[in-house]
Each structure stands twice: as C-alpha cells, then as structure tokens.
C-alpha cells in the first residue's frame, strides 16, 4: 500500500499545486481589484463581482465574444472540411502516399509563432506574396490591407489558423477512415452504391464518433488560440481580432488589471466546460449508434 501511495502521490500533489491551486487563485483573483502596484504591495481589495460586471459591461466584451465565436466556428468548419477531404483522398492507393501524408504534418509540428510569422510575411500589404500575386493577376486593383483593415483582419487571421489545424484534422480522420471495415464498402458497392452514396451511408455515419472527438478537441484548442493572433495582429486593429483569450491577456499583462483578466479567463473556462458537457451528453446519446449500424 505504501508503494502505491509513493507512485501516485507525486502526480496528485502536482495536480493540486499546478492546477488546483492556480485555478482557485484565478477564481479569487477575479473577485479582487488589481493595479500595477498590487504585486509589490500585496494590496488587492475585495470587490465581489464588480470585475465581472465591468467586463460584461465593456463594449469590447461583445466584440471579443463575437470574434471568438466567428473565429472558432469558421476555423472548425474549414479545418474539418478540408481535413476530411484530404483524408478521403489519401485513402486511395498510389505511390508516395505515405511520404506525402507525413509531409502534410509539418505545419502542425512547427511552433505557432513561426507559422504566424510566415503568414504575417505572406499577408504583408506591400511586399507580401499574396498581394503581389493578386495584383499581378489583376484580381485586385490595389493592395489589400489583409491585417490592417478592420474588415479583413479577422478573416485573414482565421485563414492562417485554418492552415495550422488542417493536418491534425486530416491525420485523426484518416485514422478513423482506416478503421472502417473494407467489406462494408464492398457490400455497398455490390448493392450498387456509387462513390457519393458510399460516403454518405457508410463513411459518414461510421466516422461520427471520430468526427465528434476531432471537433471537440478542435474547439478546445481554437478557444485558446493565442500565438497566431498575437503574432499577426495582437488583437487589432481596433479590437477587430480581439478574442476572449487575447483580451484576457491584454487586461492582465497589458493593463496589469489581473482581476479583470481573471474574470475573462473564468468566462472562457465556463464556455469550454459548457461545450464539454454538450459533447459528453452527445456521446452518451449517440454512442450506440455506430455499433447498431455495424450489426
């Protein structure tokens, strides 16, 4: 018994110290008023729910919430769609399949700061390859301010984030496709199902559990995207790409009002948990479905 405690005690202590305590600290920080001096003087008066009220009353809150929703929904939709299309494509047998598939992983392995930096260079208004190409082809007449216009910044940042997420979606969905038994496709083909019908009636339903996992992980990951936005726009221009994550950062580490930053962070946790619960409930209700179809 002593041995068992010895093996598990470190991890339990670690979880308490590095997750339990910080999360509790974050909860109480949100109830206090911090200023630039608070960390030196230790003086942060209790203000109750005033930080939450201040945050929710701030017009930036609505902007950040909307941006977060648009950024997340668009990222998930396109990452999943393109990832699935690639996964289906790579199911075909052809030379170099394995090599090309592993090359596609590279964008996922790069530090996000590096990916963001590359996109910043591509989106550069004057010398970026995107504008230079579009201008040369006559698609646009004047250089598009991809990152510096309030209208274009969010779509541009989202596009960069979609690029980052495609490999992850592709790899997991490819794994899911590989586990669908080949005889089901053969049976469907014998019944006269075409390519689309086989996708619609075999692939799609049997891939559902995997799709749900991918989307859930993608959601959790996209909600906390920080690096890409910071490198590309830092939440600007004029909060056009401000999400709850970047806003929380700028409140805490820019304005040194850790109480407000913690309040936004806690709202972010609530949103993530809300979707996690929805996901778990969805799993429970749709869990037996694939098994039923397999039988």
């Amino acid at each position: 018994m002593a041995a068992r405690i010895g093996f598990l005690a470190p991890i339990v202590a670690y979880l308490v110290l590095f997750f339990g305590y910080p999360l509790a600290a974050n909860f109480t920080m949100a109830l206090r008023e911090y200023t630039a001096a608070s960390f030196y003087t230790g003086d942060a008066p209790f203000v109750g729910l005033a930080n939450y009220a201040a945050v929710m009353g701030d017009p930036v809150f609505t902007t950040a919430l909307t941006n977060t929703a648009v950024f997340t929904a668009a990222s998930l939709f396109f990452q999943f769609g393109i990832g699935l299309a690639l996964a289906v494509f790579f199911q075909r047998h052809f030379p170099l399949n394995g090599v090309l598939r592993s090359l596609l992983l590279i964008p996922w392995l790069l530090p996000l700061v590096v990916s963001g930096t590359v996109w910043r260079w591509i989106f550069d208004q004057e010398y970026g390859v995107l504008n230079q190409t579009l201008l040369a082809l006559g698609v646009v007449d004047t250089a598009v301010p991809w990152l510096s216009s309030t209208a274009m910044a969010l779509p541009s940042v989202t596009a960069a984030n979609i690029w980052v997420g495609i490999p992850f979606n592709m790899v997991i969905l490819y794994g899911g496709l590989q586990s669908i038994p080949a005889h089901l496709y053969e049976a469907a083909a014998l019944d006269g199902a075409g390519r689309w019908q086989r996708f619609r009636h075999v692939t799609w339903p049997l891939l559902r559990p995997v799709s749900a996992v991918v989307l859930m992980l993608g959601l959790v990951y996209t909600l906390k995207v920080f690096d890409v936005i910071m490198v590309l726009t830092q939440g600007g221009p004029a909060n056009a790409t401000q999400t709850l994550t970047t806003w929380s950062y700028s409140l805490s580490f820019g304005e040194l009002d850790f109480g407000l930053g913690a309040a936004v962070g806690n709202l972010l946790i609530v949103i993530a948990l809300l979707f996690a619960v929805l996901y778990l409930r969805g799993l429970r209700s749709s869990g037996p479905a694939p098994a039923r179809e397999r039988r």
Binding site: F18, Y21, F39, V220, S252
Partner: peptide, 24 residues
Amino acid sequence: ALMFALLLVQMVPGIVMANSLYAV
C-alpha cells in the same frame, strides 16, 4: 477520478494558467 482530472485539466485555457501562474 484522477484520469478524468488529467483529461479535464487539458481543457483549461492557457491564458487562465498564465494569469494564475504569474501570481504563483
């Protein structure tokens, strides 16, 4: 419960961890 905790903590947004770890 420990396994569940390990899954759950991966969902905590990084900015929340940064915020509170700064204080720690």
